[in-house]
Every structure is written in structure tokens, then in C-alpha cells.
Deep mutational scan, measured.
Amino acid sequence: KVMEIKLIKGPKGLGFSIAGGVGNQHIPGDNSIYVTKIIEGGAAHKDGRLQIGDKILAVNSVGLEDVMHEDAVAALKNTYDVVYLKVAKP
């Protein structure tokens, strides 16, 4: 199931950690970017929809399929206060 989640960045950013990407696979044979941690009190935690194990398909208009881990981190960092995440639920 794919959904779009709109998050408003807090003082600590979006409030979640990711793993995965080309050269840094979270699941062997899979280059996808996965949510590995939700920080308590952060934007994602308060919103409640993003969960550990969700796959991040895109940030705003930037696709995160088959990208390097660093590029995924940069895509999440290089955002304004309002961030749209395209997410696939497991």
C-alpha cells in the first residue's frame, strides 16, 4: 500500500532515521530506503503514520529508488519545513 505523508519539520528535523540504498543494502538484494528508527517527540512520531519498516519511495519530487544512501540522506536534509513523503507500507 502506497501513501503520501505530509510532515512539518520540527526543531530536530523530521524525526526518523533511514537505512538502505545502493552499496548499503538494508535487506540483501534490495536497494530500497527503509525507516529504521522513529525519534520520540519528533515530527514523524507526532504524526503517527510513518512506521519502522516503511519504505520511502520519494521525498517531495525526488525519487529514492536505486539511489545511494548518501543521496537519500541529502534528499531528506535538503527540504523546507513542509515535506511530502511517498511511502510503501510493508
Rank of each mutant, 00 (worst) to 15 (best):
G20N: 02
V35M: 02
Q25H: 07
E65K: 14
L14Q: 02
K46G: 10
G23T: 09
G13Q: 04
E65P: 03
Y34N: 02
A19K: 09
H69N: 12
G41C: 06
D66S: 13
L76P: 01
D81W: 04
M68G: 14
K89E: 06
G53L: 04
V62S: 15
A88L: 09
A88S: 11
K86N: 08
I52H: 09
L85I: 14
T79I: 14
V2S: 06
A88Y: 15
L76F: 13
E40V: 08
K9G: 10
I56P: 00
K9Y: 05
V87I: 08
A44D: 01
G21W: 01
I56Q: 00
G21F: 02
N24P: 04
G23L: 08
G13R: 04
S17Q: 12
L76T: 03
Q51N: 15
G10I: 04
Y84E: 13
K77W: 07
D81L: 07
G13D: 07
L76W: 02
G21D: 02
A43Q: 14
Y84A: 11
D54M: 15
I33D: 00
I56L: 12
I27D: 09
A44M: 02
D66H: 12
V62H: 15
G63T: 12
D66Q: 14
A74I: 10
K55S: 06
K89R: 10
V22H: 13
K46D: 11
H69S: 10
N60P: 00
I52Y: 08
L85V: 10
V35P: 00
K6M: 07
V67P: 07
K1E: 04
V59Y: 03
E40S: 12
V59C: 14
I18L: 06
A44W: 01
K12N: 06
I39F: 09
A58G: 15
M3K: 09
P11E: 07
I38L: 12
K9S: 11
A74K: 11
A74G: 09
I56Y: 00
V83Q: 03
V35K: 02
K9V: 10
M3R: 05
I8F: 08
H45F: 15
N31M: 03
L64H: 02
V59R: 00
K77L: 08
G10Q: 10
N78R: 12
K89Q: 09
V67G: 06
K86V: 07
K55N: 04
A75F: 10
L50I: 15
S61P: 02
Q51G: 14
E65Q: 13
G42W: 03
L85K: 00
K89W: 04
V73F: 08
N60T: 02
A74M: 12
S17M: 09
E70S: 15
E70W: 07
G21H: 02
V67A: 14
P90K: 07
G41N: 13
I27Q: 14
I39T: 13
I52N: 11
L7M: 06
K6F: 06
M68P: 10
N60L: 00
G10D: 15
V83I: 12
V2Y: 15
A44Q: 01
I39E: 09
P90Q: 14
G48S: 08
I27E: 09
M68F: 10
V2T: 05
D30M: 03
Y80F: 13
K86Q: 11
G10S: 13
V87Q: 00
T36C: 14
E70A: 15
G15H: 01
N24V: 15
P28E: 04
I8D: 08
I39Q: 08
G63C: 09
H69M: 08
I33E: 01
V22N: 10
P28G: 07
K55T: 08
V67H: 06
Y84L: 12
L14T: 04
V62Q: 13
N78C: 14
L50T: 02
K46I: 12
S32N: 15
K1W: 03
K77P: 02
G63L: 12
Y80M: 09
P11S: 09
T36S: 10
A74R: 13
G48Q: 09
K89C: 08
I52T: 14
I18R: 01
G13S: 06
M68Y: 14
E4T: 12
K86M: 13
D71R: 13
A44I: 03
R49S: 14
D54H: 09
G53Q: 05
